[in-house]
Amino acid sequence: MEKILNRDEGRLLAERIAKEADVKLHECYQCGKCSAGCPMAGSFDLMPRQIVHLMHLGDMETVMKSKSIWLCASCHTCVERCPHDIDIPALMEKSRMEAQKRGYCAVRNVKLFNDIFTETIRGFGKSQEVILEGIYNVGSGRLLQDINHVPEMLQKEIVRPELNQVRNKDHVRSIMKKCEEGGALN
């Protein structure tokens, strides 16, 4: 579909995200050093450089529907090498939060993993790798993923069946509840 730039409604959102991330979008001169060093770029549908440019244009919809914002590993290689110090991981992260609010999710499994992880924290106060992987495998339909490692892990006592839990679980839960009620930090 034809894209009419000056009718784009994402500009305000993009500007807000950029401000929160302390990024001046106009500084990006599209050199591509970010994309060149990004370990995940091979799987991105939009290069990190293109995310910055789309935000500068105000096309947040394309950004929020992209896979790249979900696949970003927050490794910070891009910003470490960026000539203009543009905090791309922050742009990715904040775009991802906005995408979630609007129900966009181009890489379902990443969201699923994070959701389950968050719930194990709510449940036990600590992460539970076995439970996490188990529920994730069911939820993602990848029942056999990493299953070959399980007997070995048990045999070598790498994981144990018992749970590690926080005593004051209510404290952790109340912290999470308060943060969720307050929404994402704006």
Partner: peptide
């Protein structure tokens, strides 16, 4: 308790800090 790890800062910045 858990530091929040990647999951928290993917979902909610304040939760990640808290």
């Amino acid at each position: 308790s858990c530091c929040g790890s990647t999951a928290a800062h993917t979902k909610n910045e304040k939760m990640a800090y808290a």
